[in-house]
Each structure stands twice: as structure tokens, then as C-alpha cells.
Amino acid sequence: MRPWLGAIGGVLLAMTALLAVAAPLAAPYRPTQINLRARLQPPDWGAPGRPRHLLGTDNVGRDVLSRIIWGARISVSVGAAAAGLGAVIGTTLGLCAGFFGGRTDAVVSWLIEVQLAFPFTLFAIFLLAALGGGFVPVVCVLALATWVNFARVVRSQAMSLRAQDFILAAQAVGVGPVRLLRRHLLPAVLPSVIVVASFSAAQAVLTEAALSFLGVGVDPTIPSWGAMLNLGRDYLSDAWWMATFPGLAIALTVLGANLLGGWLGARLEPRGS
């Protein structure tokens, strides 16, 4: 992986994060400000002095750019938190399953299969309807989907690592299981965890979008990219900008996460370059 690709990924993510943090300063309008006289206006780069909508307005006249900037808050925080929580759960379970094998592995593999067999969206709607929406429930429900990605990759890596001489050698000098998992196996699987985290964050961003569309998202008063995208689908032939720009925001963030993840994954491998 070329370093400059990783740098592009880093810049994309940094920009998204910066916009999310500085949303009140960066957004030209309030994201919920309705202006029915300016409905469905196309992107306008016109003369200074009059109110402009750089990326157009939506069906009730809200500024698309401002909503994308505010929406970054949801996407970035939900994506990062869901991927992080899933990484912690999935890596722990995967390491234990792959290393200890036997009954531990049977239980974890069963959990993975149950999770994969379940229609996740249905499950998520059920849970969120029961728990009520909000940031923490949404992140927890998304982590239920992402931990499997980590557990599967980490489990298979731990299984092959377990048979390697350097793990056996560590056991031979008297290293106990806790230290063995933390100091020997975890660093070895970390590059893959980071790569999986990048696409799991992307997956979480997309799933959050779907949940927002279904009305069980984080917070209906804060715009999210997914909700905007889904709303824009209805106006695709009349107002292409309504769906295109939120979609572009999702695509660029996901691309940035993947580029950065791939580069980090390659860098954390000590041998070769």
C-alpha cells in the first residue's frame, strides 16, 4: 500500500471529523431551518450578497450543505463507537475461541452463526423499538452486527498463530494464558483488527443510515446522512442534489476509512514493507 493513499484516507477522515466538531461554525445555516419559499433549489454558486445554497435545498427548503455538515456528527461518532465496541467484543471473543479451542470455540462459533443467520435489520428494529432510540442504544445494536466481523477474522488468525513456534516458545518459558493473549497474540492480530475496523465503521455508517430512514435512528431532530439519502431517493428525478451529496459524503468517509485502514494494516506488519 502506497503511503500517499493512506495520507489521502487520513485527510478525508480528518476533514470529516473536523466538520463534525466545528459544525456550528462551518454550517452556513441551521440544519433544521425550513424555508418553504426556497424548496428544491439546485446548487447555487451565484453572486455574493444574497442567500446561497452551495449544494441546493431539500423538499422543505433546508440547506443541504448545512445538513451534511451537522450529519457528520452522527456518522462519525456512531461509526467510530460501533466499530470500537464491536472490535473490543469481537477481538476478545475471537482470540479466546481461536486460542483455547474446544468448548470456548464451540460457544463463540455458535454465537457467530446465530448472529449471521439472524435477519439483522429486523432484529435491530425490534431491539431499538424496545429500548427506544438514542445514541447509546443505536451504538450497542450496531456493535451487535460488527463484532462478528472481528470475531471471525481474529478467531481464524489465532488458530493458526497458536500452532506457531513463537507462541509455543512463549509457553515454554512459562508465559501464562492472559499474558500470552495480551502480549503475543493481540499484537499479531492487531493489523487485521484495524483493517476490519475501517470497513466495520463504514458498515456502521450505512446501517445507521438505514435505521434513521426507518425512524429508529439516533435522533430525529439531528440530520443524518442516511436519512438525507433515503429522503432524497424520492426526489431523484427532480432534485438529484438531495441524494447525491449525502451519498458522496458517505462514500468519501467510507473510502477514507478503508484507505487509512489498509495503510495502517500494512505498516503494523514488522516484516517486509
Binding site: 513456534d165 513463537f166 509455543l168 516458545a169 512459562g174
Partner: peptide, 19 residues
Amino acid sequence: RRLMQMMFQDPYASLNPRM
């Protein structure tokens, strides 16, 4: 285990590449 040690056939493979 402190008192009984093993030297593996391939010394490179027996060393953790990240330590």
C-alpha cells in the same frame, strides 16, 4: 518451566517478530 527450557529447531520462528 523456569527450570526446563526448550530451544526450537527454527530460532527465527520461535521469536515473536513484534517483540
